[in-house]
């Protein structure tokens, strides 16, 4: 199977899962309520599991995770954004898990190289999306403060969402249809949460591209420094 899997696509999807799982893992011990420690950890573990399968399709999982430089990572800028407050984390989850669910559902229904993985992952991702939806409703339609925070978070992350619909080499998916359905789905959740679908551009203004081309945002370098330092400090060691 490895031979037929396009490495670029495996890295793109694997890095998304790896980086988001890392960010969510930063919540451990800091969540607003004990049940959320458990819920966020579930999502971390699902995404980390997906990342390990995907990266292993492209090479050695640990070499890829720990020994690549920032510019070699292919994840979306959205997933590397710092956690911010709980509203930012939930907005990021809503945007990403909606995308991931739509994409994996499409991949699972085809007969491409990612179909088996997507078929398993889509069930996990459905739970992630539901978790994000439940919280979006509660924060959007909760108190005045939570509404304001959630709207702010949705607005702030909006500009990172266009990148999800750019073509990825080796990934057969109808990007335009994906985008339409994503807008519908997110618009529906935000509407029920009494939130406004943000306006404004959804892609960066840089002609050089973004995460899929290895161009990241400043916080990502610090994230990798923390993630990689121990592994890199002991070259060749096994753990």
């Amino acid at each position: 199977m490895t031979a037929t899997v396009p490495a670029t696509a495996a890295l793109a999807l694997g890095d998304d899962a790896l980086v988001l799982s890392h960010r969510l893992g930063e919540w451990a011990g800091h969540a607003p309520v004990l049940e959320e420690e458990v819920a966020l950890a579930n999502i971390v573990l699902d995404l980390l599991g997906q990342a390990r399968v995907l990266l292993s399709l492209a090479g050695d999982e640990d070499e890829l995770a720990y020994l690549r430089e920032e510019r070699a990572f292919r994840n979306l800028q959205l997933v590397e954004q710092p956690n911010g407050d709980f509203a930012h984390t939930i907005a990021r989850q809503l945007y990403f898990s909606t995308y991931q669910q739509l994409l994996y559902a499409e991949l699972a229904s085809g007969d491409g190289p990612f179909a088996p993985l997507a078929a398993k992952a889509v069930k996990e991702v459905a739970y992630h999306r539901d978790h994000a939806e439940q919280w979006t409703l509660r924060l959007g339609d909760g108190t005045g403060t939570s509404h304001e925070r959630m709207q702010h978070a949705c607005d702030a992350l909006w500009r990172f969402t266009g990148e999800m619909f750019q073509p990825v080499e080796g990934l057969d998916a109808d990007r335009a249809a994906l985008e339409t359905r994503w807008l519908e789905s997110v618009g529906d959740v935000l509407g029920r949460a009494t939130l406004t679908l943000p306006e404004g551009p959804r892609t960066g203004a840089w002609s050089a591209g973004a995460g899929r081309q290895g161009l990241h945002t400043e916080p990502f370098g610090r994230m990798l420094a923390e993630m990689q330092h121990l592994h890199r400090s002991h070259p060749g060691a096994s753990w």
Binding site: L18, H22, V38, A41, L48, Y66, A237
Partner: peptide, 20 residues
């Protein structure tokens, strides 16, 4: 966030989740 391999990271995360 500093676990030195992805396998160890998954194990540690699962353990911390158990404690919760």
């Amino acid at each position: 966030t500093r676990a030195p391999s992805l396998r160890r990271k998954a194990i540690l995360m699962a353990k911390v989740q158990d404690e919760a």
